[in-house]
Amino acid sequence: MSNNPDLDLDYVANLARLALSDTEKTGFSGQLADILRYMDKLRQVDVTGIEPMAHASPVFNVWEADVARPGLPVEAALRNAPAQRQNLIVVPKVVE
């Protein structure tokens, strides 16, 4: 992180829900600092009055009518679940 005060690796890793090892932290902070320095070149571009582009070819009002389609049978829905009980997905206890 000393390489790049802008990127708080611990904060961002927590937001991204990624546990990083110390080795990864050291490696990433240097590499990401390089990359972000490279990204900084975008500051040279005058973007005054330019609309941001969210879609390559935007069209409006793409929707479907409210007509139900069959979903997945519960066996298919839970086929890949790492842990399940009585057709529910089991996770460690969530404390609210």
Binding site: L42, R43, V45, V47, I50, E51, P52, M53, A54
Partner: peptide, 8 residues
């Protein structure tokens, strides 16, 4: 900013 550059 990147999305604006994308427009350009």
């Amino acid at each position: 900013r990147a999305q604006k550059v994308r427009t350009l």
